[in-house]
Amino acid sequence: MTIRFVGIDPETDEDGCPTVWVDAEAGDLLVQSYTADEATTAECDSASPARSPKPQEETVIRIPQRMIPALRRACDELDSGVR
């Protein structure tokens, strides 16, 4: 795996904070963030096209708005084909 750090929550204390990486080999984004609460997860389940609960191996995460620039950089990096 070729994992590269892209960005961290600008309001971080650098201990358990939202972070974004790219896996250039797989072309994937990796995100560490807050687990959505049960009410949010249930609302996401009901709003999904399948209207069914998410698979057990998946989770809903909440990404703070202030992390959007880091996500854009990660997407741009993957789109540019940087390996």
Results as ranks from 00 to 15, higher is better:
residue 12 T to M: 04
residue 48 S to I: 02
residue 70 A to P: 06
residue 50 A to N: 11
residue 79 D to R: 14
residue 19 T to W: 07
residue 53 P to R: 12
residue 2 T to D: 02
residue 41 T to P: 01
residue 75 C to Y: 06
residue 51 R to Q: 14
residue 56 Q to P: 12
residue 38 E to K: 10
residue 41 T to A: 15
residue 1 M to H: 10
residue 31 V to W: 12
residue 44 C to F: 09
residue 5 F to N: 07
residue 37 D to Q: 09
residue 33 S to T: 12
residue 24 A to H: 01
residue 26 A to F: 02
residue 23 D to W: 14
residue 71 L to S: 06
residue 39 A to G: 07
residue 48 S to M: 12
residue 34 Y to R: 11
residue 49 P to C: 01
residue 18 P to C: 02
residue 24 A to I: 04
residue 58 E to V: 01
residue 62 R to K: 08
residue 21 W to S: 04
residue 34 Y to C: 09
residue 73 R to K: 09
residue 68 I to Y: 12
residue 44 C to A: 13
residue 81 G to Y: 00
residue 57 E to I: 01
residue 69 P to M: 03
residue 61 I to A: 05
residue 18 P to E: 03
residue 43 E to R: 14
residue 4 R to G: 03
residue 76 D to T: 15
residue 17 C to L: 00
residue 59 T to G: 00
residue 3 I to A: 03
residue 38 E to R: 13
residue 80 S to R: 11
residue 1 M to K: 04
residue 32 Q to V: 13
residue 29 L to E: 03
residue 43 E to C: 01
residue 61 I to L: 13
residue 14 E to W: 10
residue 74 A to R: 01
residue 61 I to W: 02
residue 26 A to S: 13
residue 39 A to Y: 00
residue 12 T to P: 01
residue 5 F to Y: 15
residue 61 I to K: 06
residue 62 R to E: 12
residue 48 S to T: 11
residue 24 A to L: 09
residue 43 E to W: 02
residue 32 Q to M: 14
residue 83 R to T: 09
residue 46 S to P: 04
residue 22 V to T: 01
residue 71 L to P: 04
residue 25 E to D: 06
residue 43 E to Y: 07
residue 27 G to E: 02
residue 74 A to T: 08
residue 57 E to H: 12
residue 80 S to H: 02
residue 44 C to G: 00
residue 43 E to T: 07
residue 45 D to K: 05
residue 69 P to Q: 08
residue 16 G to A: 06
residue 50 A to M: 13
residue 67 M to Q: 05
residue 21 W to E: 12
residue 16 G to K: 06
residue 53 P to G: 10
residue 73 R to I: 02
residue 50 A to C: 08
residue 74 A to G: 06
residue 70 A to K: 00
residue 67 M to I: 08
residue 30 L to E: 10
residue 11 E to S: 11
residue 46 S to D: 15
residue 73 R to S: 06
residue 60 V to T: 06
residue 6 V to L: 07
residue 15 D to N: 11
residue 70 A to W: 05
residue 13 D to L: 09
residue 61 I to D: 05
